[in-house]
Structures are given as structure tokens and as C-alpha cells.
Amino acid sequence: MFRIPTVTKNLLIINVLAFLAMKLLLPVTGVDLNDLFGLHFFMASNFQVYQLVTYMFMHGGWEHIILNMFMLWMFGAVVEQVWGGKKFLFYYIFCGVGAGVMQEIAQFFWVYFMLDGQQALSLGDSIGVMHQLSTQLNGLTTVGASGGIYALLLAFGMMFPDEKMFIIPIPIPIKAKWMVLGSIAIEFFSALSMPGSNVAHLAHLGGMIFGYFLIRYWRNHPGQSYRPGNTQFFSNLKAKWDARSQQHSHNEHSGNPDWDYNANKRANQEEVDRILDKIRKSGYDSLSHEEKQKLFDQSKK
């Protein structure tokens, strides 16, 4: 199993510590950290702009944080190793904020249609009513890292679309691209059928939408920001292959009969070296699907 990269590891630690602090402080002091750092509806009296960032580090319960942290570990570790820490963190925060913005918009229209159903109101009049109900609207609070994590799922699917994965309870492996499309469909129809649900389906979709357009922007402007921000992962991979090459070369000169095996290893190393050189010259997105798959397979060894 590969080592958890630095940013992903720190995000896991921060989320867990914030959750434990929330659980410990609430019964002892009565202070609800989810109320302070969760994302309130922007017409509510407790809304603060900083909550667009802090809400993604807060969680509502054990099931919520365990599932989110598992997905952050599973997809975040791979995406960070490919992109590098700085670019990965920017993408994660950017998409998390975008998910929060989408949730705010969704909540505004949900409240508007609820008020309009009771008494016909114009959009301007409804804003005045919401202002009067600002204290009651504090109950509309969003917490969780799901927006950023769904964006990581999208990034993984776009980088490794044909990578097969097992999803419980489905007994057969599913390609990443179909898993992404399935997730989009589920969240979209869930948002339509359950507009008042406690699950922020539109925030999940919002994270993926912001992630998609950011990745598309990076791909269309490779000279600006789409080159990997950290080549340490690729350098380590090359060093590992160099070390293996020296070991196999020594075995050959010692009369090792497995010449074909060693020859295949040498050819494999040369192919990896060529891919790494291509990344340094032209960026990760210049790789073909087969080259990306080979790097992904080697990152797991």
C-alpha cells in the first residue's frame, strides 16, 4: 500500500480532530462547533463568510465522517500523488467552496418556494421576509467534506476512466468513468426528488461541477497551471526503478538464468523513464490513456 501523501494525511487529521472536538465540547461546555463553523444559509443571522471554508471540516455524525474520510483517503491519495500537494489542496478547497455556494443557492430557492407556497411573493418581497426570519433560518446549516470529496472522485474518474473498482454491494468491478456518471445521476435525481433532504445533494453536484470546469481550464491552459506541481512522486518512482534495475543487473552478471524476466524488467523501466521524461517536458495531461494507466499501476507497488 502506498504512503498517504502529506496534504491528504493532514486533511484527514484536521477533519478527525474537528469532529472529536465537536463531540467533546458540546456536552461539556454547550458550545456547538458545527453551529460556529458549519455553513449557515446566507440570509440567516449566524452566517459568516469564513463558513464557506470551515464547513467542509465539520461533520454531523460517525457514519458521516467515516464514509467521507474513507473516500478522501481512497481518492485523495492518488490524486495528490499525481498533481502534487499545492495543486491538490487548491482544487480541494476551491471545489469545497463551490459546493457551498451551490448549496446556498439551492437553499435560497427552497425557502423562496416554501414561502411562495404559503403566500404569493415576488423575489424581492421574499428576501424581506427571509430577513425577518433570519433567526429561524439558522437551522439551515450544512457540514461535511462531501463537496470536495465528490470533486476528487470526478478528478480520479477523469484521470483514470478505465480503472476498475469494487463498490459495495455490487459484486462486479466497475470502471471509474461509470462510477462517476452513476454518482452524478444519483445525486441529480435525489436532489429533484428530495429537495428538503438532510443530505446536501446539490452540494455534491456543485463540487463536481466546479471540479470539472477547473480541470477543463487547466487542460486548456497547460502552460499556466496544469503541469504537476510536485514531481517528487515521479522522481521517487524513477528512483525505485533504478534501484531495481541495478539489482537485476547484478543478478544477470552472477549467472542468473531468468534472463527473459530481467529483460522484461529493463524494458519496463525504460518505458517508465520515457513517461516520466514526457511529464517533465509536456505535463501530465500529455500522456495517453495507456501511459497514465501504467503510472497508476506503478504507484500502487
Rank of each mutant, 00 (worst) to 15 (best):
F109R: 01
Q132F: 02
L140W: 07
F88M: 10
F109W: 14
A203T: 02
G139P: 00
V129E: 09
F156N: 04
A191Y: 02
P171C: 13
Q119L: 10
T135H: 01
L205P: 01
G147L: 11
K87H: 08
K177R: 13
F156G: 02
V97S: 01
S134M: 06
A120C: 00
G147C: 09
F156E: 03
Q119C: 03
M130L: 14
W178A: 04
G128C: 00
F90S: 10
G85H: 11
G147H: 07
V129I: 15
E104P: 00
S134A: 15
I174P: 02
V101R: 01
G139I: 14
L133I: 02
I168D: 05
G211N: 07
S126Y: 03
L137E: 04
D162A: 12
L205G: 02
I170A: 12
K87S: 13
R216H: 08
P169Y: 06
F189K: 01
Q103P: 00
S122K: 05
S122Q: 05
V129R: 04
M179P: 00
T135R: 02
T142E: 13
P171Y: 10
K87Q: 15
S183K: 00
L192E: 02
G84F: 11
G157P: 03
P195W: 04
T142M: 11
K175N: 06
P195G: 09
M208Q: 11
A185L: 15
A145E: 12
C95Q: 07
L153K: 00
G96S: 15
I127S: 02
A185G: 09
S183W: 05
A151C: 10
S193R: 12
G206F: 09
G147E: 05
I209M: 14
I168C: 00
G100D: 06
S183L: 08
I186Y: 14
F108L: 14
